[in-house]
Simulated scan of single mutants.
Amino acid sequence: MQLPKQHRHAELLLVTATIIAASGWIFSKEAIQHLPAFGFIGIRFLLAALCLLPFCYRDLCLIRPIVLLKAFSVGSVLGCALLLWIYAVSISETLGEGAFIMTLSQLFVPLFAWLLFTDKPTTAFWYSLPFAIIGLVLLSALGEWNQSSTQLWFLLAAIMLAIHFNLNSRYAQRVPVLLLTCIQLCSIGIIGLVISAYFEVWPDVIPSSTWRWVGLSIIVATSLRYAIQTKGQKGASAANAAVIMILEPIWVFIISIIWFAETMSLYKIIGCSLILLSILINRGMGQFVPLYLQKYKSRFMTKIR
């Protein structure tokens, strides 16, 4: 009976991680009210990398320069994804909607694995794709896409996250997890600060409350979130962990309604639901559909005979 308890504890940790991740959207939105968006990303992830550095310094001294360069380059792709994301957050009035669009990155992963490395998607992917497309059409306000251009930025961020996932799984497998996280957080921070220096103007005075939101983003939404998530993933089954992590956009939607009094029309709620359904199908529910079809086909052939 101890094993199920361990599984429940791990799954509870994962649920907690999704709530913290959703809260990170609110922290970020509040922080960039008085901070440049790209500069905020730079500060957040560079300081988070420095927090991890003491725990992986020895591994950093042993890593080969070419491996370090690959890890840094892959982290740069993640940095581009997060810069697109924070820009979308900065101009968005519907965070919940954006969170559902961002979950499409999980659906894009097999697509880009196919395009980049010729790894064919599973049958579940093809079953899930129509639901995602219909969901995006509904989210585009049935032809009013120009009135909600932030959706496009969230979509681009989701695409970049999918590309990063594929590159990360191919070129960064030999790097210890903690060191890889530190390197990639560092690359994100550097890219954010460099772009901010060139394109953004920093205010002369930044309220102290803004730095509290920055601190929450670094300590809670980044460091604590990934620590809890990693511990939870070690104790939970991969299938359950995957489904639990899909809770994040739901929490974002709920928290944004409470915090920002956001509203969403019925057809957009249906669109978000279809996107969520597509992710669930792609995560494994799709295997039941071909099995059912195969069973139906067998019965049909039996009747013919």
Rank of each mutant, 00 (worst) to 15 (best):
L3D: 04
P4W: 12
K5C: 04
A10N: 08
A10W: 08
L13G: 12
T16L: 15
A22I: 04
G24I: 12
S28A: 15
A31R: 04
I32Q: 10
Q33R: 14
G39V: 02
I41N: 06
I43M: 10
F45Q: 00
F45Y: 13
L46V: 05
L53W: 02
F55C: 06
C56H: 08
Y57E: 10
L60S: 03
L62S: 09
I63W: 12
R64L: 10
I66W: 09
F72H: 13
V77A: 00
L78V: 00
G79A: 15
C80P: 05
W85I: 00
W85F: 04
V89R: 00
E97I: 15
G98Y: 01
T103K: 07
L104C: 06
L104F: 03
S105H: 14
F108W: 09
L111P: 02
A113Y: 05
L115F: 09
F117G: 03
P121R: 08
T123H: 15
T123F: 11
A124R: 04
A124T: 13
S128E: 09
L129S: 03
L129E: 04
I134Y: 10
I134W: 08
G135N: 06
L136K: 03
V137Q: 01
L138P: 15
L139K: 01
G143A: 13
N146E: 07
Q147A: 02
W153P: 02
F154E: 07
A158R: 10
A158F: 12
I159D: 00
L161F: 14
F165K: 00
N166S: 07
S169C: 10
V175S: 00
P176L: 12
L178I: 05
C182G: 06
Q184E: 13
Q184K: 07
Q184W: 11
I188N: 05
I191F: 09
L193R: 08
L193G: 08
Y198M: 09
Y198S: 06
F199G: 07
W202C: 05
I206C: 13
S208H: 11
R212E: 10
R212P: 02
R212D: 13
I218Y: 05
I219M: 08
A221Q: 04
A221T: 01
T222I: 07
S223Y: 14
R225M: 14
Y226P: 15
A227K: 03
I228G: 08
K231M: 05
S237I: 02
A238L: 14
I244E: 06
P249E: 07
W251L: 03
I254M: 10
I254Y: 10
I258D: 13
S265N: 10
S265R: 15
Y267D: 09
K268M: 02
I270T: 01
I275H: 09
L280G: 02
G284I: 15
F288T: 12
F288N: 13
R299Q: 06
F300S: 06
T302H: 12
I304D: 09
R305K: 08
